[in-house]
């Protein structure tokens, strides 16, 4: 069942479903892209305000934001590419290079830190065989250290693409990574929480 979507919520779609259906192709200059931009822009008194939603939209279609996308965004909103670049680099959620199909973000901020968040991060790096921010050779994983994800009572908090895992312990990491490997085909479009990680 597809959800009804009012234009009022177009700038806040659950972008991180990251369908990646665009591949290497254009996003903002297709008919669908143009229509999306028009709807988003209609919600603001100034065009520029649609910039963040627009970059997020691109990322949902490609998994990351290319320099070409930034130029297209600038074009669509009458901005300079340099300005778009300065905005895109200010916000941490825009990936400026390809990331693994499972983008794993581990909070190590204070509440998670107190609940062994730094160890959880280490375990994810070990299990995926990557360094922080680097995509695994198989293209399945990128692990990032994150600031507070707003679920501090359920530390350690880990996001895998659009899914939120709570109460993750270092001991529970292996099972999560294995589930992601097994689930590679079904992922990333599953809507519910696949795994409530940890103990």
């Amino acid at each position: 069942m597809s959800r009804r979507v009012h234009p009022a919520v177009v700038p806040a779609q659950p972008f991180h479903l990251a369908t990646r259906e665009a591949g290497d192709g254009p996003v903002l200059t297709t008919d669908e892209g143009r229509e999306w931009v028009e709807t988003a822009v209609s919600r603001y008194p100034q065009k520029k305000a649609a910039l963040l939603p627009l970059l997020s939209y691109v990322q949902s279609k490609r998994g990351w934001v290319t320099p070409g996308d930034m130029a297209d965004a600038a074009d669509a909103l009458d901005l300079t590419p340099a300005f778009v670049h300065s905005v895109a680099t200010f916000y941490t959620m825009y990936n400026r290079r390809p990331v693994g199909r499972h983008l794993i973000q581990v909070c190590t901020n204070i509440a998670c830190f107190l609940n062994r968040g730094e160890e959880v991060l280490e375990r994810f790096l070990e299990e995926t065989g990557t360094h922080e921010g680097e995509m695994s050779a198989c293209g399945n994983f990128t692990v990032l250290e994150q600031e507070c994800l707003g679920a501090c009572g359920f530390a350690t908090v880990v996001h895998v693409n659009e899914k939120c895992f709570e109460n993750v312990t270092p001991e529970g990491v292996g099972a999560i990574v294995q589930a992601l490997r097994d689930d590679a085909a079904a992922y990333p479009n599953g809507a519910a929480r696949a795994v409530e990680g940890g103990d």
Binding site: A8, V9, P11, A12, F15, R43, Y44, A49, L52, P53, L55, S56, F90, Y91, T92, M93, Y94, E147, C148
Partner: peptide, 12 residues
């Protein structure tokens, strides 16, 4: 009165 939901992109 209109209302729009807008997403940020990661910045405290």
């Amino acid at each position: 009165c209109d209302l729009t939901v807008h997403f940020g992109a990661g910045a405290y």
